[in-house]
């Protein structure tokens, strides 16, 4: 590690350095992400919000090593990511298509563990626990396509949990589930996060959700994408669908994020655009601004 201004903070679990991604298509080049730099500390739960088409999925694919960035790099525990890292799990936006339709629910959850050579007893325990956690212990022998959308999404989440990742990336995982299931799943994510102490990067375009879930919200500008703002969420640790959402502080934060996204959509770019933003939690101050 050389002394470099873009150097990851030493305690960073995941750090994204000057990331840029240009898609080469038949119709010319598309610059999806221009310049992104941020760090996630180990055990942090951060939400990433941004307008549709702002490159959230692209960013996640670069982080998970499915796609090489055009410029910049992604570091996981200080090591450069060049392929899908072992200790990372991804829950995709198109959850229905991310489950193997020829395998039963249980086999879907079990496959990554089996592939890693986890012994049978251990595997069974992890799978049972994960299915239990998402409330699906009663359908292990169903096929994914026999389940409702929300249940399918929970299978995908169970698979990620059972895998015991250190970093969990989720791409708008609740976009297609009903409000009630959504609330349940949000609480599930918080519970799992607290229990396992993993690092989570949660992509969403739902402002309420980002504020409710995250310890921190990273707002992206519209494409070509830079970081619009990075806010710490200073809500109480224990969150409750009714109480937390009715706190005045919740409303303020929500209001602020909303304004920023509106700005982003209008194409108003932050002053810092193009230059790497500072450390992991620079924005606590801007959160206080609104207060």
């Amino acid at each position: 590690m050389q002394p470099d201004p873009t150097q990851a903070a030493p305690e960073a679990m995941l750090s994204v350095r000057g990331l840029k991604k240009v898609y080469q298509t038949d119709g010319g080049d598309v610059e999806a992400v221009r310049n992104l730099t941020f760090d996630l500390r180990a055990g942090e739960l951060a939400c990433l919000v941004g307008p549709s088409g702002s490159g959230k999925t692209t960013l996640l694919k670069c982080i998970s090593g499915l796609m090489a960035p055009t410029e910049g790099e992604v570091l996981l525990s200080g090591k450069r990511v060049s392929g899908p890292p072992k200790k990372m799990a991804v829950v995709f936006q198109e959850y229905g298509r991310s489950l193997f339709p020829w395998m039963r629910v249980r086999d879907n959850v079990e496959l990554p563990l089996k592939n890693q050579g986890v012994p049978r007893a251990e595997r069974d325990r992890l799978v049972d626990e994960a299915l239990e956690a998402v409330g699906l212990s009663h359908v292990p022998r169903s096929y994914p396509w026999q389940l409702s959308g929300g249940m399918q999404q929970r299978v995908a989440i169970a698979r990620a949990i059972a895998y015991q990742p250190e970093v969990l990336l989720m791409d708008e995982p609740f976009a297609a589930v009903d409000a009630q299931t959504r609330a349940d799943l949000e609480d599930l994510i918080r519970t799992v996060w607290k229990k396992l102490g993993i690092t989570i990067l949660f992509v969403t375009h739902d402002i309420d959700e980002s504020v409710y879930l995250g310890e921190r919200v990273i707002i992206l500008s519209s494409s070509p994408t830079v970081i619009q703002e990075d806010i710490a969420i200073d809500l109480p640790e224990e969150r409750d669908q009714l109480e937390t959402r009715s706190l005045p502080r919740f409303t303020e934060l929500r209001h602020h994020v909303y304004e920023q996204i509106q700005l982003a959509k209008k194409g108003d770019r932050p002053a810092a655009a193009g230059t790497p933003s500072a450390g992991p939690t620079p924005a606590a101050a801007s959160g206080a601004d609104v207060a």
């Binding site: 090593g65 499915l66 899908p84 799990a89 991804v90 198109e94 991310s98 193997f100 496959l111 592939n115």
Partner: peptide, 14 residues
């Protein structure tokens, strides 16, 4: 092969 499924397999090291 569905690209999303293929990506999933990839991230889980399959």
């Amino acid at each position: 092969v569905d690209p999303v499924l293929s990506d999933s397999a990839h991230t889980y090291g399959v």
